[in-house]
Amino acid sequence: MAVVFEPTKGLTDKPFHYCPGCHHGIIHRIIAESMVEMGILEKTVAVASVGCTYNCYEYFSCDAVQAAHGRAPAVATGIKRNLKDNIVFTYQGDGDLASIGTAEIVHAAARGEKITAFFVNNAVYGMTSGQMAPTTLLGQVTTTSPFGRDASYQGYPINVSELISQLTGAAYVERVCLTDFKNIQNAKKAVQKAFKVQQAGLGFSMVEFLSTCPTNWGKEPVEAMEWLKEKMIPQYPLGCYKGQDIDFANLGKAEEKEG
């Protein structure tokens, strides 16, 4: 018999500290697998943000830099501008990217920085125990929206992929989830497409992963996935919001057509 699935070399052998059933672990793995499969691990630099995955640099086998809360896209800009042939990605949660780091992500995309942002949307601040995030759903109970998010004084969820895809500098934006085999394989395709967009220098790329947070949602891991499918997907429809039809085979010609 042959091995058809085994742990990837793209990850170190340090066990994840994430809660049972948290999708961060799946996302880490498909990014790591993609780096190995695409042969780019040796020239990738990851930028960790602040949140549950503040130390994801201990899990990815590539070089990595830890950034201040919300500033990963700026750190990545500084890195990529100097290492033009390297692959640079940020790994950020919704508090990091959509709250304190909004300016950084918007301007990195607007500048068309040739970096990739992996954005994990789990509708709460995980690390600091479940506060409301910009992506918290209306009516969703969190430690800072204990009566359920009320638009009248806590405003509305932010659809980041739709927002970023409006920026010309953004070449590829897709929202995926990890609730089953098909979705995980699709998410992995999105990860690799984002890396390809970066390699081809087409501009900024971002993959938004809807992700569970069993601990702070107060739900069993499987039940949390149901809630994600039932409640989060309607607010955050899956799909490609920019760069659906990038034809990597003949990029040169594609530009001529558009030009």
Binding site: V3, F5, Y18, G25
Partner: peptide, 8 residues
């Protein structure tokens, strides 16, 4: 999520 399983 934790790369526990190997499949042959």
């Amino acid at each position: 999520p934790d790369s526990v399983i190997t499949v042959e």
